[in-house]
């Protein structure tokens, strides 16, 4: 068994080495693929806070991914059409600045997660899954009918948004931005897991009545986790929209919610790098098998089945064994 921290360093090294190699041999498409994987990883790291630490099986995380996406789409769309978003009571213009777009994406998806969390945390188990799913679907259908922003066809943004001091049109520079955000998010999540908050969240998943007996408000802790989780997935959505320079209601689809869960499960539920490994494997399979057969999802399903049946803790569990305890 390999120690989990060593394995994590190895994954980080891959995330640096593969794009570096791709640049050296002039394969920009590989960089784009890696960017896709890293953005999915951020979304799944977000979900893993709710799912892995909190035990909250959300089948609606596409809602936050989509909100992040539309935050980018709407802001950039208004900038490229020179039409302000609001003129009254004060003027709000669109923007092509990534940091501003990220901020809006994070705030909007946090607010959505707060509302969805408040309502869905009144239930648990399969009802929780269904309510989160229902919210995701509401956003999906709303955006299909939202003709001001392209309705079913979505919105195309002609030029990637900007980041001060960088040329975001250069694939490797955009990759560097996404990779840095992933690293930052991983650092926050790892600290969060060991913090008092993480301790309480982790215990709330296992024995909620014990957490209450300790004088802590279980629901409030789970709600906070759900909001942080939604915010991170929302940020990933904004990056995803920027990668494709396109947003559409598909970002809200329940299939996407399912895929984010699949990333986490493949890599390892509750493992820090589980979502990263899952997203990498998914994008690799999508690229390699997707080229061979239209029905590549069958093989993905097979892999998922094997992992669920034969490993507790996904691929990381297979390679590194059980989760170590903090001391």
């Amino acid at each position: 068994m390999i120690q989990e921290t060593h394995f994590n360093v190895f994954i980080l090294a891959l995330l640096v080495a593969i794009p570096a190699w791709a640049i050296a041999v002039d394969e920009p498409f590989t960089v784009t693929l890696m960017t896709r994987a890293v953005i999915f990883a951020i979304a799944a790291v977000g979900l893993n806070i709710a799912l892995g630490l909190g035990g909250l099986v959300s089948l609606g995380h596409a809602a936050f991914f989509g909100i992040g996406g539309y935050a980018m789409g709407i802001l950039a769309f208004h900038q490229q059409t020179y039409a302000p978003i609001f003129e009254w009571p004060f003027v709000i213009e669109g923007t092509k600045s990534m940091p501003v777009i990220w901020l809006v994406a994070v705030v909007a998806s946090s607010l959505a997660a707060l509302v969805i969390g408040l309502l869905s945390l009144r239930t648990s188990g399969v009802y929780f899954i269904m309510i989160t799913l229902a919210f995701g679907q509401m956003f999906f259908f709303y955006c299909i009918g939202w003709s001001a922003y392209g309705g079913e066809d979505g919105l195309s943004i002609y030029v990637r948004n900007g980041f001060p001091g960088l040329n975001t049109l250069d694939p490797i520079q955009f990759y560097a931005i996404c990779f840095s955000i992933l690293a930052l998010v991983l650092w926050i999540v790892s600290a969060l897991a060991k913090s008092s908050f993480g301790l309480a969240l982790n215990a709330a998943r296992q024995v909620p009545h014990r957490v209450e007996t300790a004088g802590l408000n279980t629901k409030r802790i789970q709600l906070a986790a759900f909001v942080i989780s939604g915010a991170i997935t929302g940020l990933a959505g904004a990056l995803f929209a920027d990668l494709n320079r396109f947003v559409s209601p598909a970002m809200f689809s329940w299939q996407l919610s399912g895929e984010i869960i699949v990333f986490v499960v493949i890599g390892g539920v509750g493992r820090l790098f589980g979502p990263v490994v899952g997203a990498l494997v998914f994008v690799a399979l999508e690229h390699i098998l997707g080229g061979l057969s239209e029905f590549w999802h069958i093989y993905l399903g097979l892999l998922l089945l094997l992992i669920v049946l034969f490993s507790h803790g996904g691929l990381i569990g297979m390679v590194c064994g059980r989760k170590a305890v903090h001391d």
Binding site: A191, S195, F197, L199, G215, L216
Partner: peptide, 13 residues
């Protein structure tokens, strides 16, 4: 944690 500390706003282990 409930009586002696609090679970909020700290990333300290």
């Amino acid at each position: 944690l409930g009586a002696t500390g609090n679970p909020w706003f700290s990333l300290r282990p």
